[in-house]
Design a protein around this nucleic acid. Sequence first.
DNA 1: CCACAGCAGCGAACCGGTTCGCTGATCAAC
DNA 2: GTTGATCAGCGAACCGGTTCGCTGCTGTGG
Lengths: 335, 335
Amino acid sequence: MATIGDVAREAGVSRSTVSSVLTGRKYVSPETRAKVDAAVAKLQFSVNAGARALATSRTMALGVVVGFHEAEFSPALAAYLIALSDAAREQGYSVVLLTEPDGVEAVRRAISGRQVDGFILLNVVDDDPRLEPINQARYPAVLLGMPQDTRGVDAVDLDFAAGAAMLVDHLADAGHREAVFLKWPEELYDSGSTYANRFASSARERAEQRGLRLVPVALPVGPEQVRAALRAVLQDPENPRALLIHNDAAVAMLPFALYDLGLEVPADRSVVSLHAAELARLYVLSFTSVESEPVAVCQTAVEMLAKRIASPDSPVQKRLIVPRLEAKGSVETVA
Amino acid sequence: MATIGDVAREAGVSRSTVSSVLTGRKYVSPETRAKVDAAVAKLQFSVNAGARALATSRTMALGVVVGFHEAEFSPALAAYLIALSDAAREQGYSVVLLTEPDGVEAVRRAISGRQVDGFILLNVVDDDPRLEPINQARYPAVLLGMPQDTRGVDAVDLDFAAGAAMLVDHLADAGHREAVFLKWPEELYDSGSTYANRFASSARERAEQRGLRLVPVALPVGPEQVRAALRAVLQDPENPRALLIHNDAAVAMLPFALYDLGLEVPADRSVVSLHAAELARLYVLSFTSVESEPVAVCQTAVEMLAKRIASPDSPVQKRLIVPRLEAKGSVETVA
DNA sequence: CCACAGCAGCGAACCGGTTCGCTGATCAAC
DNA sequence: GTTGATCAGCGAACCGGTTCGCTGCTGTGG
């Protein structure tokens, strides 16, 4: 309700002085500042975001661009959105949700309407088309995900390669010489999903180093299909008895498939996985695992974006958050 | 980049004429309009959201206030956020996420900073404190949830009472005379959660009408605790063999508990439940059930809010979205 | 005692739109 | 031919902040 003019009148000073107090950009004597503060409190004044945005050409808002993703695990999404919003608030920013199926269009509109100061892109893929309008307008942005080529944009992600290596090491250390590698659907790798590919190639590489034979199995889409596929994998006597999983649906469904076949962990099968932290919050997942770190990743992303906004020309940054492996006894030690 | 002044110059008209074309509020001859449209296209102009907000005192943004506890325990949340954002965009609004632990403070700040035109409150409880600043500032809002007293604010929610009645009917129709009612933790009811209480009292009432004896069991918090509690319930020979569930954690965990005890559905137990639609998308939930309708609920909420913003003094509305029961053969017909 | 530096606060201009009263042109009626 | 109504478009004022050059006062040094 109250405007800066009301505050000025109440405090007996000029509008510009009030502004100086509010922004802190100019020295104001303690006495005047006290008068202004009192007036602000009395009138319950707070700055009009739109007016300030117009004057400063800073909206203090970040656009969070959610990719279009039917197939992916959306329960995890909420954790990221909340973590992003919390981190943004801490830096004085608010978060605008951009969920348009056509992410490029969403970005374009937000830019030309000057709705945000920068973007955080979720579900990044290699050669992400959303980068085009962003780079063209020279807008600040941070990728949540680590494509091969970040095209001059800051990026942060979980270190899926490190996670994969940890899990492979864990199996190898326990004496395993071979393992089934339960992967995401093939399409995800083909579509250039950054994390899936980084995990897979790191797992392959480390497994080779450690002399662990990997039998890769791409799983289908859809809960029932996954369950059936898991059963098939578990039933095949040719398959190794250790399982390395990077597929949230499979992690969630595995207990059912084990149940179907009367198998026990770790007696009959050894299991390690990397999955969304959210999964473990709802289910008993007693698998030794590496969990995603939504809070750490999001906090880093927002900090990087805030810095990028402040200094657009500082060198491009890439940050990988190293996760922790939590042993839960789902791996049998073999001779 | 381009401002309305650039467009005016390019088109050879005044700024106000460009504005008339953009807003459509005033008649402009087809020829001038064509010139303006051409200039807009050529300069890739689109209005500066902040400037328009300042001039019109309409931000065209909606604040979505996410409750605190929700953050910890709702895989369904993402579905609601996306559905809200999609619906908002359809009405020309954008969505600002307000996730502050202290929801009241978040609302207060958004109001005094004029950041949004109205609010959508998630995870509403009876006597919700967030309504105080909203009502005091006479701000438009819509509740996603249906408290006893909506305090003059529009509200929309799934018709949990109807859902409960459907499920009770389904059991009674199949000849059951008694059922265990697996409920949320007691605290949820005590904290004034609107949907939990509406479901519970409707179930109780309908069960009485249909001569179905209900044995209520409030479940604990935490996956392992839930699993153990479920086992205890299933093991007790005194308990009825039919299960009426309103507790997402229990729905997700029940297959594990059944597995623990070697029980089959529907041979050993009949199961019906009401749960988040998200749950069924990820897991094999072959329980006869009523699912939440995030898209329908969110669309209605945004439409109601848009109307409320347009006409603040129209009569208060309450809408309940009636869900569908989907039979999946998890109920045994008894004599 | 005067000159000048330093400093707190003022005021005007500006950010990019919208709104509304007014102008000048066109045209019909008398 | 003059009057009056109609209408497209113009221009100034305004929304609520920020910014920056300027003013007038205080105080120090010569």
